[in-house]
Computed example of a mutant assay.
Amino acid sequence: MVEKTLNNGVRIILKETKGEGILGGYTFIKSGTHEEWKRGLTNLTSIMLLRGTKKFDSFQIASAFEDYGGSISADTTDDYVQIGFATKTEGLDKALEVLESMLLEPTFPEEQLEREKKNVISAIRSKREKGFELAMENLRRLTFKGTPYEVSPLGTEEDVSKIEKDDLVKRWNQILKGKNVVFVLVGDFNAEEVLPKVEKVLSKIPPGEFTFKEENTSVEESKVVYVSRQGAQATILCAWNGPKLDDGNWFSFKVLDAVLGTGMTSKLFQFLREQKGYAYATYSMFPTRLFSPRLFTYVGTSPDKAEDALKDMLEVVRNSTIKEEDVELAKSKIIGGFLLSHQTRLSQAWYLGFYEVMGLGWKMDEEYPKLIQKVSLKDVLSARDRFIKEHHCVVVKP
């Protein structure tokens, strides 16, 4: 492992591997949807990075990676922009040349902008045709009200339709600051030889930092919102408070999440599906976000069973009996899944960069399994008692 912080604030992390001459890289830019003046602006900006620069058109950008059997992508999450690529070792110089042009001289061609705006609006509409996505859209508005997370990174139809090229240029200049950027490369290369090449590119990124205020909101009062939608299935999605990244309960809550809703041995699956026969599907998830942490629990069932399923899901989350063996099984699931998700160099690069950009430090990629393993039954029960109280729920049904 080689790490370095450049004078402009950019963090570089290089990890050498031994193999067949392949590599994967990620550039993270801490920003996401924070401080957007038009919802969906950052996502559209990231998409447009692939549509042309002063040196390369969209075909040439794709060819620089696909000619070696690789790929390149760019998108936006709630808290960061990510640009990922995979290529062969001999394609690294070309990859860095293209990446430099994308970062420093994107042209945001207007004819492609109009097409991408239509694509994004179509994606927003399409998501509403899916029960889970419609429920999440409404749950975001309820549980993240008044914060950037209130709307997904895709944005709103109204705002996306009004985005112009000047908005993209302004947003990109706003967020592309050295202290917000993390670059990770994992693959079959010599780090000492590669580091100067990477430095040459990334040192050109403007210094400074894009800062945004911390906007936290919590579930203070239980609420259930009903949304009408045609179809034969009811979707129930609930949000619960969770610990922040720097809270000592964060790892315990990850284990609680796995106990409740990971796999067919989880509490939700065993009770709602196996015992009660409510569920087409049921699970939980605890996404890692900078602010306003939430545990989400989901069940899909038939409309006539929706009220009973909601009642029982709330009961399982709050009061299901958790034993030592449940915690040990959950920890095994988490650690096993974590290791399996690191099989490619691209995924290894993603995890290193993700932990770094979220403020946990890239070494968390090494420490995470150990810290999960240390969680005890007492820790899990304590975390549930502290955070699992009030709930926000959305029920989508005919």
Rank of each mutant, 00 (worst) to 15 (best):
285 M>E: 11
298 Y>E: 05
274 E>S: 11
225 V>E: 14
301 T>W: 02
240 W>K: 01
284 S>C: 12
281 A>Y: 12
238 C>G: 08
224 V>T: 15
304 D>Q: 14
248 G>Q: 11
275 Q>D: 14
312 D>I: 05
222 S>V: 09
242 G>V: 04
244 K>Q: 13
235 T>E: 13
240 W>A: 04
253 F>Y: 12
311 K>D: 12
296 F>H: 03
263 G>S: 08
271 F>I: 14
246 D>G: 09
265 T>R: 08
260 L>W: 00
236 I>A: 04
256 L>F: 12
303 P>V: 11
283 Y>V: 04
293 P>A: 06
276 K>I: 05
239 A>G: 13
259 V>S: 04
298 Y>W: 14
232 A>T: 13
248 G>N: 12
289 R>F: 05
275 Q>C: 03
239 A>N: 07
250 W>T: 05
242 G>E: 00
254 K>A: 09
305 K>S: 14
227 V>Y: 07
299 V>Q: 03
298 Y>T: 06
305 K>C: 03
285 M>T: 14
264 M>H: 09
263 G>T: 06
269 F>V: 06
286 F>R: 01
310 L>P: 03
255 V>F: 07
253 F>T: 04
269 F>W: 15
260 L>D: 03
229 R>N: 13
255 V>C: 10
301 T>K: 05
259 V>L: 08
302 S>E: 15
257 D>F: 00
301 T>G: 08
